[in-house]
Amino acid sequence: MYHELNDMIVADKLTKTFGDFTAVDAISFEVKKGEIFGFLGANGAGKSTAMRMLCGLLQPSSGSARVAGHDITRQSEKIKQTIGYMSQKFSLYEDLTVKENMRLYGGIYGMNLTAIKAKTASIASALHLQEELDTLVGSLPLGWKQKLAFSVAMFHSPPLVFLDEPTGGVDPVTRREFWELIYAAAHEGTTVFVTTHYMDEAEYCDRVCIMVDGKIQALDKPGALRQMYNTNSIEGVFLQLARTAKRMAD
C-alpha cells in the first residue's frame, strides 16, 4: 500500500530502540527514484541507525519500510542484492590490490569475470587509477581510497546506493571530487541516499532531511528549507533545529 513505482524508499513510522534508548523515533519519508537524498544530523542523531535498518543490517523495533519494493523486515536478502553500501569506516581490504578488491566485490555480487574486467577498466580510467591496479590499497592516499570505496560500492551498478558519511576526514578538494562522482552516478539514474554532517554538502542534495534526537525535524529541498527558516544556508537551518536537541553527541 505504500509502494509506488516512483518511490525507491518508503519509510513508515520506522523506529529502533536499544533498551530504553530510542535511537530512531517513528520516522516517515519517501525517496524518489534518481534522487540524491541527504540525511543530516549531529553525531548520535540516529542517521546511521536509520540507514542500517534500510540496508537490512538492523531489524526495526516497530514501523516498516520498503526499499526498492522489498519489505525490510522480511525481504532483507532481496534488498541486499539491490543496493550498494559504503560504510562509515573505510571498508576495502588494505592488504589486497585495487584489482583484487574489485574482483572480490564483483564476485560477491555474482558478476561474471568479463563483466568484472570491463567494470574494473572503466573505474580505473574514471579515477585515473590505471597505473595503480596492482598496488595494495593500503598504500594509496586517503582521497583515492574513499573514491575507490565509492566505486566499489557502485561496482555491480545498483539502482540504489547508501553512503554513510562517505566524506569523513577527507580534504575539501577530494570532497568536491567525491560529489562529482555522486552526481555522475545520479545522472546515470542511481538513487543516492547519503548521510553527512557537513552542512555545505547538504546544498548538493536534491532534498535534505534533518534529524534531531531520532526524529525528522525538517525535510525539503535545500532552497525551500533556507526560505522556511529564513537563513541563507542549510547550516543556519540546522543550527536553529539542533538547538532543541537534548541528546548528547557520542
Binding site: 537490512g56 536478502e77 541486499k80 559504503m86 560504510s87 573505510f90 571498508s91 581490504y93 588494505e94 555480487y109
Partner: peptide, 14 residues
C-alpha cells in the same frame, strides 16, 4: 574492527 564485516553483511553473501 576495520568495518569490512558491515559491508559483507550488507552484501548478498549469506
Amino acid at each position: 574492527e576495520t568495518g569490512t564485516m558491515e559491508v559483507l553483511l550488507a552484501s548478498p553473501l549469506p
